[in-house]
Design a protein around this nucleic acid. Structure first.
Length: 803
RNA sequence: GCCCCAGUGGCGAAAUGGUAGACGCGGUAGACUCAAAAUCUAUUGCCGAGAGGCGUGCUGGUUCGAGUCCGGCCUGGGGCACCA
């Protein structure tokens, strides 16, 4: 898809940068190294070479002079350079924290990489561990990243929405409860909680803190509490466990004072359903209007006081059973908030808390800081040194890149970099004493967060040349899968903004236009015993409307399964090389582009490729049978003019289709036009028609070029086109020629199609009405009816309303 | 549970509120062939011999006119998920 756009825009006369690079660090290479004992570097560059050949064979119009891989020291060294810049800006920090630990890949994962409680690559259930970790302060940009979405009008709504939800801004109130009696050490200022429902404060029945909350840790001297905390840590984070996990808690025995009623106190509980890393890690619970609080309160016998009365509810009889009421309503049982609506009550409660100096309105994000350290050897080393005297010291830029050693040992699981015998020993850049290098490497999503900037100046000494970056950026059209909607696309936006703030480029948003393309899928087939079968090993026979699959050779009937993403495990892959050999690259390209709209998955079928292959052959026949036209007559005859009109309509239709990424529709137009050409063969054509045919073929070759570049090139040469078709300009059309002079207008009677008339283009309503009423077929349909109204939509349709 | 998106022939799919099913695949019939494949021609939403009727998940509504807009429901897909 990207190549079609690149070729089209180039033909439109734009200077197009269509680069290719390789996201080369990461686990696939390490796993290959571990399993096969190969060097990951060799393995990676070998793979790149293979893939590069594949892409070249596909005829992608890529500027290979800008190619690089993220595992080139020349690339990641520049990454280390700006990493240090961000550190100086305070966007990098190290923190002891509870992290997601993947026990199979033996590494820490970002929240975004934990899917349903499992590692996104290994599928292993993620454990919680406490480790010193490197973080990027993406939360500093939460607001910007959210606001910036509205400027991305050429992004799919879906992706913008996903990012919006991921950032998850909510407005509420942060305030501190004062302890009743003496406060525990460290909590003299009280216990700070966050809520989005300050209106329900009068319905509060307890205050809860997370098991990881400092208060809980402070109280861990109590064996009961210590046991409870341990219990919570053990619990996994998988979907099933969370879904079924019962809400449990333990009463600390502490009590806090209600902010609006000094006489009332609330118990403080530690509960497993409270998240430490959202808000303040502490909440007040209003069970009547929050389902989780309700479940918890019912279990531990805590009071449930409704304070929001649903519209039309009766204050005397309204009760909350097993379902919390979260809808709108009127406050009651709520002191000074009584009678207010929910929104008004929120504002009033926040105002009162602020007046009391106990807290203030706050905006909280769901987004967490980005943990970027990975305990892996095949990645970009974090350029810092740990010194006993000086602490954590950045490597001076003059010593960059901090390169990986050549002889990493990947034969065992774990961090190959950390166990390298000599690499990590170094001298402290500050004091010169013996020190050790950081052996964590950066998440590969860091590598992929700025490569597009680097493409603008791949040889620059700095991360990027500002003039080049400003000339090319932002990326006008970014093409990728939806799977990157929140991970890569959010990180890249963040990094680009950070680099902007560092003064490296002028553009904040890296991708002006985003297009999410579908994948290639294929039917799956299995034997009766459940074994998957490759498409190459079977044949399909059609019996009327039903299709049956049989194993070639034995003739064993097979089960035709679902259409799924091509994968080795389901064996539903086809070898591209064989397809190219059999049908040619253009047939394969054309099929993928023509069969479905580009954002949707395309189902690979052999018969479909055969179809595009047939088309290509027929197109070639048309070009091949075209004789050199003689001198064209000054005026085209009727046939010639019709052909000319058709060609101009084609240009319009294909141009519009490509502009709006409806490649399948554009290709359908090319198919239709082939039928027009076949209906006007060169053989026996009048000189006028022959001349128009020649013009039409010239247009046709240029319109095909983005989709089937090789065929277009041959066709162009066959008709004696100037130079190469890649360099030929995109054809224009004459608006006067795309509209017909006489139109066939459908005629409806009471909204149902009853016939058609022909009328001159642009005919006025009265004129058209006369033609309609004079039409015998329409007259027959109107027999016995009285005409109420005749609606004429100019040049489109006529509707006669009669009864 | 919450938030999105999508439901159109046997299949992939077209259709600025204006002739539903363009184009392709598959099917059927015919031509060519001793025969098959390939190719070409015709035909192909459903019911009906025909005239005609019915058709875009279901159901209401707006409109001269709804696949398209609005409400409710059903089904499928995606995202988030104890976020207070």
């Amino acid at each position: 898809q990207g190549d079609v756009i690149a070729r089209y825009q180039r033909a439109k006369g734009f200077n197009v940068l269509h680069p290719m690079g390789w996201d080369a660090f990461g686990l696939p290479a390490e796993n290959a190294a571990m399993e096969r004992g190969v060097d990951p570097r060799t393995w990676t560059y070998d793979n790149i070479a293979k893939m590069r050949e594949g892409l070249k064979r596909l005829g992608l119009s890529i500027d290979w002079s800008r190619e690089f891989a993220t595992c080139d020291p020349a690339y990641y060294g520049k990454q280390q350079s700006w990493f240090l810049d961000l550190w100086k800006r305070g966007l990098v920090y190290r923190k002891e924290g509870v992290v997601n630990w993947d026990p199979v890949d033996q590494t820490v994962l970002a929240n975004e990489q934990v899917v349903d409680g499992r590692g996104w690559r290994s599928g292993a259930v993620v454990e919680k561990r406490k480790l010193a970790q490197w973080f990027l302060r993406i939360t500093d940009y939460a607001d910007q990243l959210l606001e910036g979405l509205s400027s991305l009008d050429r992004w799919p709504d879906k992706v913008r929405l996903m990012q919006e939800n991921w950032i998850g801004r909510s407005r509420g109130l942060k305030f501190a409860f004062k302890f009743a009696g003496s406060a525990p050490a460290g909590f003299e200022a009280g216990l700070e909680v966050y809520t989005t429902r300050p209106d329900t404060l009068f319905g509060a029945s307890f205050v809860g803190v997370a098991a990881d909350h400092p208060l809980a840790e402070r109280l861990a001297a109590d064996p009961k509490i210590a046991a409870f905390i341990a219990e919570c840590r053990k619990g996994g984070a998988s979907e099933a466990e969370i879904e079924t996990a019962e809400k449990i808690g333990v009463d600390t025995g502490l009590r806090v004072v209600h902010p609006f009623d000094p006489a009332a106190t609330l118990p403080v509980w530690i509960a497993n359903f409270i998240l430490m890393d959202y808000g303040t890690g502490a909440i007040f619970a209003c069970p009547a209007h929050d389902q989780r609080d309700l479940d918890f309160s019912r279990k531990y016998g805590l009071p449930v006081t409704p304070v929001v009365l649903p519209p039309g509810g009766d204050a005397a009889s309204f009760q909350v059973g097993t379902e919390a009421y979260t809808g709108p309503g009127t406050l009651y049982n709520s002191g000074f908030l009584d009678g207010l609506g929910v929104e008004a009550a929120k504002a009033a409660a926040i105002g009162r808390i602020e007046a009391q100096g106990q807290g203030q309105g706050a905006t909280v994000y769901r987004l967490r800081d980005w943990g970027v350290a990975r305990q892996r050897g095949w990645g970009c080393p974090i350029p810092v040194v740990h010194c006993d005297k000086c602490g954590v010291v950045p490597v001076p830029k003059s010593q960059l890149p901090v390169a990986l050693p050549e002889d990493l040992d990947f034969s065992k699981p774990g961090n190959a970099l950390a166990r390298h015998p000599t690499w990590k020993t170094t001298a402290c850049p500050d004091c010169g004493a013996a020190a050790v290098r950081e052996t964590d490497t950066l998440d590969t999503f860091v590598d992929s967060s700025w490569y597009f900037d680097r493409f603008t100046s791949p040889d620059a000494d700095t991360p990027m040349d500002k003039a080049a970056a400003d000339y090319w950026m932002p990326v006008d059209q970014y093409v990728g899968g939806v799977e990157h909607a929140v991970l890569h696309l959010l990180y890249a936006r963040f990094i680009n903004r950070a680099l902007h703030d560092e003064g490296m480029l002028s553009v904040r948003e890296p991708f002006a236009g985003l297009f999410t393309q579908g994948m290639v899928t294929h039917e799956t087939y299995r034997r009766q015993n459940g074994e998957w079968v490759e498409p190459a090993r079977l044949e399909i026979a059609a019996e009327g409307a039903t299709r049956r699959a049989k194993l070639i050779g034995s003739g064993e009937p097979l089960i035709i399964g679902d259409v799924e993403k091509m994968s080795k495990s389901k064996r539903n892959t086809v070898a591209p090389g064989e397809i190219f050999d059999a049908y040619g690259v253009d047939a394969a390209r054309l099929f993928v582009l023509s069969d479905s709209p580009p954002e949707r998955d395309v189902q690979w079928t052999t018969s479909g490729v055969q179809g595009t292959w047939r088309f290509i052959n027929r197109v070639w026949d048309e070009f091949d049978s075209q004789p050199a036209p003689g001198p064209a007559p000054a005026q085209p005859d009727a046939e010639g003019l019709a052909l000319r009109r058709a060609a101009h309509r084609l240009v319009k239709a294909v141009t519009e289709a490509v502009e709006s990424f409806r490649f399948n529709s554009g290709i359908a137009q090319l198919y239709s036009f082939l039928n027009v050409l076949k209906a006007n063969p060169a053989k026996g054509a009048s000189p006028s028609r022959l001349a128009e045919r020649a013009a039409a073929l010239s247009v046709f070759a240029r319109l095909m070029a983005p989709f089937t570049p090789h065929l277009a090139e041959e066709a162009w040469a066959r008709i004696g086109g100037q130079g190469m078709v890649v360099n030929a300009p995109w054809p224009d059309y004459d608006p006067a020629l795309v509209v017909d002079q006489v139109l066939i207008l459908p005629v409806q009677v009471n909204g149902k199609r009853r016939g058609e008339i022909s009328a001159p283009a642009g005919a006025e309503a009265a004129e058209v009405e006369k033609i309609v009423l004079g039409d015998p077929e329409i007259a027959r349909r109107l027999e016995g009816l009285t005409i109420r109204k005749v609606i004429v939509v100019k040049d489109r349709i006529v509707n006669v309303v009669a009864s």
